[in-house]
Design a protein around this nucleic acid. Sequence first.
DNA 1: CCACAGGCGAGAGCACTGCTCTTGAAATGT
DNA 2: ACATTTCAAGAGCAGTGCTCTCGCCTGTGG
Lengths: 221, 221
Amino acid sequence: MAGQRERARQAYIADITAEARRQLARDGAAGLSLRSVARELGMVSSAVYRYVASRDELLTLLIVEAYGDLADAVEAAIGGDDDGRVHWRSACASVRAWAVAHPHEYALLYGSPVPGYSAPQDTIGPATRLYAALVEPVRHRRGRRRPSTVTSPVLEADAERVAAALGFDVGAPVLLAALGAIASLFGLVSFELFGHTNNVITDHDAFFALRVEALADELGL
Amino acid sequence: MAGQRERARQAYIADITAEARRQLARDGAAGLSLRSVARELGMVSSAVYRYVASRDELLTLLIVEAYGDLADAVEAAIGGDDDGRVHWRSACASVRAWAVAHPHEYALLYGSPVPGYSAPQDTIGPATRLYAALVEPVRHRRGRRRPSTVTSPVLEADAERVAAALGFDVGAPVLLAALGAIASLFGLVSFELFGHTNNVITDHDAFFALRVEALADELGL
DNA sequence: CCACAGGCGAGAGCACTGCTCTTGAAATGT
DNA sequence: ACATTTCAAGAGCAGTGCTCTCGCCTGTGG
């Protein structure tokens, strides 16, 4: 039955995070204040502490939501297609589109880590979903190119553990190449979003497309 | 002669940024407060506003210093060698080593952009030095692999403008590949430093080395 | 060499933040 | 009907960025 008090409590938390998310989208993480969230919700600042332990915890809630949101976007983008390269293109494009549409949320996820945040258990769910979707394309690779072999046994073990967790039967070299490509993808998006290519690249669309193809080449898609 | 008042002024600014840098290295950008800098320097908080207009400007000074520091490290790393691949390895390793040694400075440069910061003119000097050093290895490429051709004329113009500014005679495709590899490099370092590979990679050294080689392959080094 | 404008440090103060504690009311479960 | 728990509210503490005013004092221009 979930006790109606507990339900009211969850509703309050939902209201709080919703308002917090609005402020995050508008002013960025630095401009998010518990007091102004309370003000906007018509309560006094101390009341909101009944529902959220601290500002950092509120940010953590937003991080979890944002991960889920991004994972949703990527999963929706790689719909029915089973061509690895098309998969990869869609996935990359959806990450970039989401980042451009939600710059502050993106910065929260992939910018400087928030001080009091330590990747709680709630985060690894959506995060796993996201990276699973991004790694998915290599399932359909045509294997045109052999990735370099892995020389470190512990790294190979890492890769095999991850592959097993995702239910993938590609080898360690391919999976590590995919993880590397994902890091490259987020590096590319971060460079664009955080302004590191200002005065360098003006046609961001074309540069992004070019790099996505290059990464697809490396992955043998 | 530079007026002894002006010299004293510069010395004060140097003291302030030095103390600010100490606090940045210890507590991170979020924990840097103008008041505590003033306290540590034995002055009252309003006095420091004579030398630094705002907290954001102080952070900007730190950003410029950090860029210079990182550029120094990379330039020192790619010493006399003229083998492109060795160059690239040293450059990548020096970026990663600097990032690990100065995580908060790295986060300041490549994490979420600080709100009131707009890449002032002072930044582009050290930043250009840094990226010039990182692009340098492709000068000595053996050209084993042809990068994909560029289809966007404006992107090609971007690349040629940058190449001209750096005095490079490599073609647009190679320069764009190099810029992409740089973005990949920082994506990789950020992933490691910001904890996105926690519970995934344990042998960060090996993973980094693997990716550096893959990028070198793509660059034809 | 000297007057003085300008740079200077100090202090008070404003508006804001995160967070804690107490108090009294209201809802709850027995 | 009652005891317990949950709650909103308010006051309050310590800290922040930043502004303004007030004298002092010193380097600089005449």
